[in-house]
Nucleic acid binder design. Sequence first.
DNA 1: GTGGTCTAGACCACG
DNA 2: GTGGTCTAGACCACA
Lengths: 129, 129, 129, 129
Amino acid sequence: MLINLDFESSEPIYQQLVFQIIEGIARKDFRPGEALPSVRSLASDIGINLHTVNKAYQQLKLEGFIQIHRQKGVVINPDGVPKADERYKQQLEKNLRPLIAESICRDYGEEEFLLLCKMIYKNYQGGRT
Amino acid sequence: MLINLDFESSEPIYQQLVFQIIEGIARKDFRPGEALPSVRSLASDIGINLHTVNKAYQQLKLEGFIQIHRQKGVVINPDGVPKADERYKQQLEKNLRPLIAESICRDYGEEEFLLLCKMIYKNYQGGRT
Amino acid sequence: MLINLDFESSEPIYQQLVFQIIEGIARKDFRPGEALPSVRSLASDIGINLHTVNKAYQQLKLEGFIQIHRQKGVVINPDGVPKADERYKQQLEKNLRPLIAESICRDYGEEEFLLLCKMIYKNYQGGRT
Amino acid sequence: MLINLDFESSEPIYQQLVFQIIEGIARKDFRPGEALPSVRSLASDIGINLHTVNKAYQQLKLEGFIQIHRQKGVVINPDGVPKADERYKQQLEKNLRPLIAESICRDYGEEEFLLLCKMIYKNYQGGRT
DNA sequence: GTGGTCTAGACCACG
DNA sequence: GTGGTCTAGACCACA
């Protein structure tokens, strides 16, 4: 399990961790039902506090990515991640708008932008490396 | 000038302000060379702290969107916004990755995603409303 | 004997087990004097730890629902469950208060609430299914 | 603001706190838009750690009871608490079932049970004392 | 001064 | 051994 944190970044560590795990799921490094390391072991592995890991796990649980079983530890949601609903789409649009607005200002054309997206998509769909 | 702030959001107010102005430029509500309200007047207009407006303006200046002159006040950069450079593209990709990774997890297909982007592009290119 | 456990729930398994058995008594699936499976057999039936079943049985014994005999095994209390006493009523009120307070906040009216209670009562009094 | 915590109870302090505030809203001690004490001041007032108060506030925020404004502090949701939805009703039923099942076992009749509920309802609707 | 984040260390319930 | 809870103390971004 590869976790790549940037301790210099202003992005909270727990959020970076959340994203790294989501990325792992997208890349199919983690399959539904697969176990994740315990709070403690992951924390010591990457050298951060267990509460930080716990916060990331709690958020992933809230969003339906993982399940936390008492004492059995943490597993990727065996039923798969909840599908995109209306709320998610609105959130996604809200997140995309600033990126696109700035791209327009900087003359970064629509074609280039879409190409970049496709490139990232392809990057994930390469599957387990 | 329409400024739409969400005081309940976890997004800092100064960042919301930064984005609203960038959006205005993208939508061509603000043209190069056009004047923006002074820190004081904008702050009192939307009922927020001077420092908050100032922080937003400073960031916009740093990124080349505006110029701040002691006498002439604040104007949209007459030379236009700096074009997208390599650094910007990397930053953009870094911002897009989490959005795309989560979309994949949620079965929100590439086509839909690209369609959403196009819609937002079209939305901005409608021009001055 | 139908036992329905939710291993993802934050409610401890032994408490779920306790409640399932209480529910069985309320529904008259279990009659006074009737035998319950031994700790061992129940544990292996539902695939949980011996200690977990034991903890549930101990709690049921403490509250007077069952009797545990070294030889005869576990039986539903032949004298019936102890009647509601003052202590029980206070406990019940303490448990109901949060539910009712939240219902009020959420505009879930008293009539609806009482109707829901009646429905649950009726549901149990249907008798052995 | 009266907060009554039982430090002996097995119920987590933060949950007791959550309930006390919900109770305050139900009793109309707290009106929509009204400010709540800051995390720090409430923590020192009742002699607990600020993180414990924070956890309670975060949960109340998640459930829509309060809003947390950056730096402006905490206020009761001005739009009122979200109405009871289907999910809430199911949760409520799930919480009521064990209470009712045990009542049936203990010969605590339906009439008495409903009377107790009504009593609690009346108790809250007395309004601000 | 406010909430957000992170660290550190401790105890407990659970299985 | 696991997650859940609580405490304590620190720094930072925000307004």
